[in-house]
Design a protein around this nucleic acid. Structure first.
Lengths: 194, 194
DNA sequence: TACTATAAACTAATGACATTAGTTTTTCAA
DNA sequence: TTGAAAAACTAATGTCATTAGTTTATAGTA
């Protein structure tokens, strides 16, 4: 029932993830993965549904890894400290694992239940962190969108070399996060009738 | 000195841009561009330095188009109004021309003088807009990084379908921009010794 | 222990691309 | 009118993904 146990899905995803992180997502080809694993390309089809299937698995893997890191980073905290911890962990993840970070956002089929669920878990984490800002649930959702935009925007621009000025990147990031946090408070005060 | 005027660089870039915007950047292949122009693939090499060369041209084209739109959008204004107008135009550009927007950030060689210069012009536009916020030039640069992160982050996440909740996207965007603006002011006040 | 069903690996073949080499065609300038 | 040069073409090669069909190893069973 299970002949030749040499290879399995996880090994393939691992190999592919390593290629993605070290050589970029473009370099993730079935040929490259097969070579890394010392097998012939068609053999991969016994474990994975072609290149799109592999990419989908990578997206899922990335979402899970990311959730793990972020969850660990903010521990039980909430409020500004939690947001700062989360932001730091997010950027660190994007820096450390650029390939799978990118794939996290580009699943071939983002609608697929498993990927969608993993995405929602991640968003849920953010919503929870904002718990004690006293936001309505709608405000919280807008705020999560904003926070995700900030984190992804910075990580992404940094990655593509969009920040060229000789100016400390971590400082820019810290200021960005703090500004947004201050902004949320300011806007909320304004919104509340006194 | 100029035989068979049928084709030229600009037509190629146009055709490629159209493919990028309608079918995604992955669909920009020399084969697809050649087909659209009713020529054979190798003929493109007379005008363009292979696929990487074409991509480079597309990046440059995108940066120029974008600068044009943003510049027009904020006119002579500066301050909050200018930032809001710019933000709106930025998002609109990313929505209208998703393909070249994406390529704008992913030139094969971002160091190449022409592309680098176009990128700097764009950043210069942002710096100018922040003119009358009374920021030091270093603060201004951090702020531009923040603003770009916000704009790109939102546009990018929206594009990949990252915002799934049934919640108005424009409202989220407006809130994000306003929060950041409020945040900048708050942080700056804090920084100044009264 | 030997047998067999089956999963997993393989080889071979096809089709899409990008790219290069080399050829033909067209146009303009002399 | 002619010839040089640019622009288009055909042909060929190599890489990749994918499919079909074959071989092989293993696990469970007789």
């Amino acid at each position: 029932m299970s002949p030749r146990i040499g290879l399995d899905r996880q090994m393939i995803v691992q190999a592919a993830a390593e290629i993605a992180d070290t050589q970029g997502t473009e370099a993730v080809t079935l040929a490259a993965v097969a070579k890394k694993l010392n097998i012939r390309t068609p053999s991969l089809y016994n474990h994975v549904d072609g290149l799109p299937g592999l990419r989908q698995l990578l997206s899922l893997y990335g979402l899970e890894q990311m959730h793990e890191k972020l969850d660990a980073a903010c521990g039980g905290r909430s409020g500004d400290d939690a947001v700062r911890a989360l932001a730091k962990a997010y950027l660190e993840f994007a820096r450390t694992r650029p390939g799978i970070y990118e794939l996290t956002l580009r699943a071939p089929d983002p609608q697929q239940p498993e990927v969608a669920a993993a995405g929602e878990r991640l968003v849920g984490l953010l919503v929870r962190i904002l718990d004690d800002y006293g936001l309505t649930s709608e405000e919280a959702l807008h705020t999560v969108r904003g926070l995700r935009s900030i984190l992804h925007g910075f990580a992404s621009l940094e990655r593509v070399g969009g920040f060229r000025m000789p100016l400390d990147l971590d400082e820019s990031f810290r200021l960005l996060v703090d500004s947004y946090l201050a902004g949320i408070r300011a806007i909320r005060k304004q919104g509340q009738a006194t």
